[in-house]
Structures are given as structure tokens and as C-alpha cells.
Design a protein around this nucleic acid. Sequence first.
DNA 1: GTCTATATTGTGATAGAC
DNA 2: GTCTATCACAATATAGAC
Lengths: 203, 203
Amino acid sequence: MSDKMKNTRSEIAHAARAEFVAHGYEGARLQKIADRIGVTKAMIHYYFNTKRELFEHVFRQSVEEMFSGLAELLDKNIPLFKKIEQLISACHNKAESDPGVLGFVLTESNRNADWLLPVIEEEITLEKSAFAEQIEEASASYTITSVDPNQLLLNIFSLCYYPSLSAPVNRAVLTDGDDKSGRELTAGRQGIVLDTILNWLTA
Amino acid sequence: MSDKMKNTRSEIAHAARAEFVAHGYEGARLQKIADRIGVTKAMIHYYFNTKRELFEHVFRQSVEEMFSGLAELLDKNIPLFKKIEQLISACHNKAESDPGVLGFVLTESNRNADWLLPVIEEEITLEKSAFAEQIEEASASYTITSVDPNQLLLNIFSLCYYPSLSAPVNRAVLTDGDDKSGRELTAGRQGIVLDTILNWLTA
DNA sequence: GTCTATATTGTGATAGAC
DNA sequence: GTCTATCACAATATAGAC
């Protein structure tokens, strides 16, 4: 693959990601993707044959990015509480650094489950045995209460990701559109999530 | 408005809701909405002029439904912990009884904030002063730790709603597509959420 | 590799008969 | 109120020149 080709190809992928995240699979327009980088629609078909193939490429990228680092973190050889803290920090970073991608992956997974869930399973393998073992040990020594590792992860994901998914609605519903209290809501958030999780575990 | 008219109109609205929830505003097709109830596209334009107007009608309905009862619950004259328990129960009911609507409202709010956030503000008013007062009192008497009412609500919404939003992804990522452990994940969920919230408050 | 031109199908919306 | 027929335009995709 030549440099020129690799460049245009990845430029298209990059522009496509923005368009798909903003409008979803059905709402995205190939013309707009082409416009974003100043090429013609024909180029998209040259590099990615169909809209469907282009989308799958973008979706794979997004899923990979959304979970990248988490598998390694779960396997890391550090104390349980430190691991949980880093997990929460990592999730917040993902939600903040690329807002929209999370909602994109979830929405498209719901709307095209038959097509995309197999893609997710291909792309993601969360090895949880080390994490589960740590929980088991901490529970056996009465350092924490006994919990299902999956429920713990689900609690962490929920507390970290939902506020980002619902940010605009929160501003309207919780803070009555007031920007100041809206920022306050996200400012102290990470510490609150950590508190919530740790207090639950050490009840 | 005649009975016949009211019937067809609400039939269209009902079919439109299913189509919009499944495909979003841009992905929804008026032809498919008409097909669902055996009328022609022309009928849709007769009752709801444009696709945009039809969508706004459906979106209003969905927002109303998503938050209906919550405002009253927050104002109810019952003990704080009982209120929290009922809040959690109500949110789980909403997520389970109409899966998809929650994600629909959030996704569309993100993608068309300028248009839809004002609609949400028109439709929803969460009077939180009674709830905030209860928290203040419980905190003053050292029954719970001091928390921001908005953060408490956000924690509850997160823990109740995110698992529903991410259900398909969870099956793929957390339970490796295993249906049995997938059901286990949702089975004990409501109790875990209550535990998480109460242990956080009484740390 | 990149473009222009075009084929084909689908989309929201309107006009007008009944 | 409900339908058929149709318009104007937009969408994905392809063919072929350079």
C-alpha cells in the first residue's frame, strides 16, 4: 500500500467516523464524508467499496478504542483498590476525550445487533480471571463484601459512562439549563464514583 | 376531532414511535410507518404535515413517559430511604417495560440538541426541593453523609439506566455471549443498585 | 488514484379524484 | 378522510476518461 493511498484511506476513515458518530449508520451521507476532506464520493467507493464496509471499519475502530487498555488494566499486577481507581479514571478519560463514540457504539449495537454484536465479540476479549481472583481473595479475608465481578464492572461502567451519555439531558432536567451547576455536576464526578464503589465494597 | 380521526392519528403516532425508536429520526421512513398500520404516506401528511412535526410529537410523548411519575415521587411525603427505594424501582420498571425508548431519547437529544433540548425543558420539570430538604435533614442528623441531591439522582439514574442501554454489548463483553450469565446479570440487579446507593450514603 | 457523468432507486411532499 | 399518481430531489453505486 503506497503512502498516498494510506493517507487518503485513513483520511476517509477519519471523516467517516465523525459523520457516523454524528448521524448514525442510516443518517450518515457519503457525500458529506467526501466533502469533509475535499474528495469525491467515488474515492470512498474506491477504498471501501460500500457504505456498509466503510461503517464496519469505523465501528471496529470505535469499539477497539472504547475498550482499549481496559483488558490490560484488569490483568495488571496491582492491589485491588488501586486497580479499581485506575479503572474508574480510565473510563472517565475515555468518556471525556471522545464524547459521542460511546453513545455511537451502544446505539448502533442496539439497532443492528445481528450484524454488530459478532463484530464486538471479535474485537473485544476482557480477561477477567485475574480481577475475579483478587475480588475472591479480598472477600475471603473480609476486606470487602462478596460481589460478582461482572456486577462490579457494570456498576463502574454505569457510573462513569451514563453521565456522559445523558449530559445534554442532565443540563435540561437536573440543572434546569444552568451552565454553572451543569459544570459542577461533572467536576466532582470522578471522586464521587470512586466513593460510591468503595463504600459499597467495604460496607 | 372525530373518533375516526383520533383513531387513525394515534395509530400513526404509535407506529411512528416504533419506527423512530428503531431507526432514529434520519433513519426512519414514512413509508414504513404507513405500512405498519396499512395506510398510505399521504395520511401521515394529512395528520402530521411533515416528518419533523411527527417526530416532535413522538419525542414529546417519549420524554413525558420516561420521566412520568418521577416528579411526583420526589415530592412524596415518605421517608428518604423508602423514597430512594421507590425511585430505583420506578427507574428499573421504565427501563424494562419499554426498552429502547430511553436510548432513543438520549441519542436524539445528543444529535439534535438545538431542536430537542428546549422540547425537553418544556416537557419536564423535576421539583427537587422537597427531596433536597430530606437529604439536608438526614445529613444534619448524621443519618447519611452529606451529598449533592443532583449527584445522588445521577448515581441512581446511572446504575438503573446504563445496564439497559448497554444490554447487548454487555452480553458480548461481560458474559461472552452466554445467555445464562446474561440473565443472571439483570436478575439481581435492582437489589445491587439499592445496596450500592445506601452503602454510599451511610458510609 | 482521482475525477466527471450517469444509472437506479428511494424519499419527503403535494395535487386532485372520490 | 382516504386514496392514486406524481414531482423534485437526494442517495448509493457504477462506468469510464485521464
